[in-house]
């Protein structure tokens, strides 16, 4: 089986307060940047063995849903993998 790299972005749900983002927003505004919102997320790169690119997408979606993101408070997205070897 071939190796496939995928990037998973994990973000807090939009409705949820992001205390870390709020803290960064405060600092940026203090510095005079015209910022009105900051949200902090995680970017996780995984390499999986799979039969093909579609199977790799499915495998990564499955592990992201079960482990990488907590559906109570987070969402995840498989990001475009430009620059990342497929």
């Amino acid at each position: 089986m071939a190796q496939f790299k995928r990037v998973v972005a994990v973000d807090l749900k939009p409705a949820l307060l992001d205390p870390e983002g709020e803290a960064i927003l405060g600092v940026l505004q203090h510095l005079g940047f015209p910022v009105t919102d900051v949200r902090v997320g995680k970017r996780i790169q995984v390499t999986v063995s799979a039969e093909g690119p579609e199977a790799a997408d499915r495998a990564v979606a499955a592990l992201a849903e079960r482990v990488l993101a907590n559906p109570v408070m987070e969402t995840f997205q498989l990001q475009p993998t430009e620059g990342v070897p497929r």
Partner: peptide
């Protein structure tokens, strides 16, 4: 226990940060 789904919901960062 919450992460495992044995109890409902999740525990996030304190409101006070």
């Amino acid at each position: 226990l919450c992460e495992a789904g044995l109890l409902p919901g999740a525990l996030g960062v304190n409101r006070s940060r």
